[in-house]
Amino acid sequence: MADVELTPDEVRHVAALARLGLADEEVERLGRELTSILGHVNTIAQLPIADVPPTKHANPHGDALRPDAARPGAPREEALANAPDPTPEGFRVPPIGA
């Protein structure tokens, strides 16, 4: 993969995917920083290792499954205690919008 240079529009697109509202100065600065970091990361892009299986798990011996036993959840007051905008029974969010 050729060296990447992130344009402001690409930075904004990635920020939108990640739901990061960025000020214009941040877009400019991140564009520079990401270009430099990805430039370094690109050193591995050329390695001819397509036949090597990717490592997905550092400990492949873990337990995949748990038995299906139910336990009561947390009391509702506790679940709602950290909510920024709670109602008596739930978590309020602003309208979904257009």
């Binding site: 978590f91 309020r92 309208p95």
Partner: peptide, 8 residues
């Protein structure tokens, strides 16, 4: 759309 917020 256009609703006055929701509770989850």
């Amino acid at each position: 759309q256009g609703s006055a917020g929701s509770v989850v």
